[in-house]
Design a binder for these strands. Sequence first.
DNA 1: TCCCAGGCGATCT
DNA 2: AGATCGCATGGG
Length: 271
Amino acid sequence: MQHIFCDNMLNIMKRYFNEINFKKIVDSGQCFRAQTLSCGANRDNINETFRFISQDKILDIKQGEEISDPFWCNYFDFDKDYGIDFQGDFAKNDFINQVAEYSKGIRILKQDPFETLISFIISQRRSIPAIKTCVERICKRCGVEKQGMYLFPTPEDLVNADISDCGLGYRHDYVKNAAKLVAYGDINLEAFRKLSTQDLMYELTSIRGVGEKVANCVALFAYSRYECAPIDTWMKRAINTYFGGKNPFVGENAGIAQQYVFYYMINHKNI
DNA sequence: TCCCAGGCGATCT
DNA sequence: AGATCGCATGGG
């Protein structure tokens, strides 16, 4: 079976999935505005607060705290059983074990489609810190202020604002064009939810500045298409280093396996 | 300073 | 259909 790698990795990981790890999610590269709020010296970081922003909601939460708000339960994908009991032989793989241990607690978020689309258009050929800087700039430029934070702009906000000095580079026109498509109703990101993954990918890649990789990110991180596995420079490196150049990230949970490997890779840059 | 970053579109073979 | 190239900017 082609997707045996992904199934095996989830099989390993199910042992660990009794707790979400907010810190890892903040640093996982799937969202760009979540923060770890610094909170004085504590060597165990036991009092760290994590701040998530989605649509017009802000959540401050500490590790171990319960979430009851249905909005955030949905955001953190509580309904998805990451401990799926896959069948098939278990091929012991040292790399899979390392990744599962290292990345345990990350979940695939259900983010706002417009924010995800714009953010990942901006993401191309940028480092994660640089993406965060750009996204924060456009929020501050034209997003609504709330509790000292700035919400991600609506399509209309983005169309009407001058964001030419937000450091977007050649992606500026891509962002403006995508915002116009949504603001003018030429595409309906909510209606995309009921498309097949194949049709969703077709619609997303028809937007200028959206290729296979960015479309996969939007499909996975906004529309929960777990079979979509974005392959960027880090994932290419992983494939070449650990899988002999053959992409193992295929199958119905490929995107989840991909995200765990991605998190491992960006935190092991010396390899 | 130099290299590279969650790539894409245009333009070739 | 595959391979190559230019692209704007910021972080390490």
